[in-house]
Structures are given as C-alpha cells and as structure tokens.
Design a protein around this nucleic acid. Structure first.
Length: 361
DNA sequence: CTCAATGATTCGTG
DNA sequence: CACGAATCATTGAG
C-alpha cells in the first residue's frame, strides 16, 4: 500500500552504507576539525598530499574498529557510546552532520518525489465509488444507479427481491471494506509512531535531524493528494448540516456515523463542519439556495415517512429557533451570533419559488 | 490561463 | 482539546 522505501536506510538516501551505531573514530573526527559552518580552505584534505598517509592510516584504524566492533563487550561499547555522547564537541558535530546530510540527500530527492497517480489505483477507486462501496451508506444515489444497471437485463416489476438481495450484499461488502479501511488506517498510524520512535531513538547516536523525522512521517502519511469528496458524501454532510442548522456541531458519535456514511475519516468530517460553519456564517446569502434545497429535502423526507423507522429527532430542530427573520437578502450578513456561540441561525425564509426539485432517491 | 470552490493546516483562545 | 479564523494548496470549471 504505502509505497515508500524501507525505513531501514536512514532517511532520504537509503542505500547509504552501513550505519554505525557507535562513532568509530574520535581521532578521525578530530582530525577533520569541526568547523561549525564554513569550512576553511585547508579542509584537512582527505585527498591531501602530505598527510594523506596519516589519513589513510586513520581510515584503516576506523575500518579495523568497525570490523572488530562485534568483539567488544556490550558494556565496553556502551561505555564508549556514553563517552562519545558526552564529548563536548558532540552537539556541534552532530548538527554539522545533519546539515551536510540534508544538503546532499534532500536536494536531489525532492525533485522526483512526486509519484504519478498510478492509473490502476485510480481505476480501483473509481470502481469502488461507482459500485457504492466507498460512497455513502444510504441506499440512494450510487446504489440505486448500480442496481438499475445490473438489473437492466432482467428488469421486471418484481426486481425488488433482487434489489434487496443486492442491497444486502452491498452493505456486507461495504462493512468489510470499511472495517479493512479502518484497520489499515490504524496500522498506518501505528507504523508511523513506530518509525518516529525508532528515528528519535537513533537520533541520539546518528545524525537524524528532527526535520528528517518530520519528512519521514510526511512520506508515510502522505495520502493521495487532495480529492474533493464525492457528490453523495457532500450531500450527506450538507443534509446533516442544514437539518441541524441551529446547532451544527455533530457529536463524536454523529461524526463517526457521518464518516462511515461518506467513506471519509472522522477528522475529515470535523474539517468539513469547521469549514462549513465558518463559510456559511461568513456569507449566508451565498448559501441560501443550498439551504433551501436541503431544508426542503429533509422536510419532505420527514413528512413523507410518518411512521417509518427513523431516528425520531433527525430532522427535529429544523423548526427550532427559526424566527421568521425578515428579508434576509442575499448579502453579507452576520446573524445575531454575538457571543461566539452559534446563535440559532435563520433557516431560509420561505423560499420564493425556487426549489431544487432534485430528488436523489 | 484565471478564479472560485474546497479540503487541509496552522494558530490563537477559552 | 474543540472551535473559530486565517491561510495554504489543490481542484475543476470557464
């Protein structure tokens, strides 16, 4: 699923050689003089002419140490590690290393980090959406369309049986789909925290800047870019919003329900409501038409099924706190919510004659 | 291309 | 921590 390279390699440049868990060469470090920012022209030349031998010997030393590192006792190694950690130059060197690493690694990585949106995945997504699996739960829009399509061959008056059968199966699939999706998301976040812990832990002995950790998380966590929600999803959300206009703050439970219906996450629902509230409030006029449509829709839904099994108060507060505010012309109005709280907003005053007679069901 | 819509993120607050 | 507000970044229509 997530297509990122294994995290074993450090950061962006994965394949870079063995990552030593102890700094093998204090001498080496010392010989290279730790310039905090700029490097003096001398540069302790590795390609050096005069002390090249010395350096070579140092490198040999280092290699030797690396090779024999497994022979050391754990205590010994720990002690060395501690000693290194306490070295007064350590922070400076560490930051320099981080900087270098970032410069060398990120510059070229950034360029081609964009993943092409894998057409196969897109197709799959579209299919799920069209099939009504990833969409909203209600037996409306997509499901109806699909059922019409599937039963088009033997479309007969008694196709209701087929329909219920189909719906049942669909909801079954949907349940599984959402369960798996949830599992995936959970695993993803677990994985993320795991990686973060790992990197944090390693950052004590290895140049891993916080920024790098951040990037790593971003990589894991990157979903496909932003996608607008499906038509049905926004419909569900809008329905809820406008039928709870007097208090458009869904409870955690309601959010979960909506999320499931829309095939999005709870935080996305929260985002949506946050955006919706602020944008609605900012320019009520712009939303009047929409409000009319949904008010009408829910009202119709309420009157149509009188004794049907529905949550009793789903459309209840449509009619609460709807003082017939006079001519709310489409314009910039801030309602009477003075004290921060969402003072009951006006539902649209009797719609002149414009109704969206779009019955989705 | 522009531009409005819109989902996500960030920051300040109570 | 949830919310409001401002803002960013992407999308899709024209």
């Amino acid at each position: 699923m997530l297509q990122q390279q294994p995290i074993t390699g450090n950061g962006p440049n994965s394949g870079r050689g063995l990552t030593l868990n102890t700094h093998p060469g204090m001498h080496a470090l010392n010989s290279v003089h730790p310039p905090p920012q700029h490097r003096p022209d001398g540069d302790a030349g590795l390609e050096g002419t005069e002390n090249g031998h010395e350096n070579r010997r140092d490198i040999g030393d280092i290699l030797q140490q690396i090779m024999t590192i497994t022979d050391q006792s754990l205590d010994e190694a720990q002690a060395k590690k501690h000693a290194l950690n306490c070295h007064r130059m350590k922070p400076a060197l560490f930051s320099v290393l981080c900087e270098i690493k970032e410069k060398t690694g990120l510059s070229m990585r950034n360029a081609q980090e964009e993943e092409p949106p894998d057409p196969q995945l897109v197709r799959l997504d579209n299919m799920l959406l069209a099939e009504g699996v990833a969409g909203p739960e209600k037996g409306g829009g997509a499901a109806a369309a699909v059922s019409a399509a599937t039963s088009s061959g033997g479309m007969s008056p008694d196709s209701s049986l087929e329909h219920s059968d189909y719906k049942q199966k669909l909801s079954q699939i949907r349940t599984i789909y959402h369960t798996e999706l949830e599992k995936y998301e959970q695993a993803c976040s677990e994985f993320t925290t795991h990686v973060m812990n790992l990197l944090r832990e390693q950052s004590r002995t290895r140049p891993v800047s916080p920024r790098e950790i951040e990037r790593m998380v971003a990589i894991i966590h990157r979903k496909r870019k932003r996608r607008n929600f499906s038509k049905q999803a926004t419909e569900v959300l809008n329905e809820y919003f406008y039928s709870h206009l007097s208090n458009p703050y869904p409870s955690e439970e309601a959010k979960e329900e909506l999320a499931k219906q829309c095939g999005i996450t709870v935080s996305q629902v929260s985002n949506w409501f946050g955006n919706k509230r602020i944008r609605y409030k900012k320019n009520i006029g712009k939303f009047q038409e929409e409000a009319n449509i949904y008010a009408m829709k829910t009202a119709m839904g309420a009157t149509q099924r009188e004794g049907s099994p529905q949550t009793p108060n789903s459309t209840a507060d449509l009619f609460l706190g709807v003082p017939p505010v006079n001519g709310e012309q489409p314009g910039y109005h801030m309602g009477a919510q003075t004290n921060g709280t969402w003072q009951e907003q006006n539902t649209p005053p009797s719609p002149p004659g414009s109704e969206g007679s779009d019955n989705s069901d």
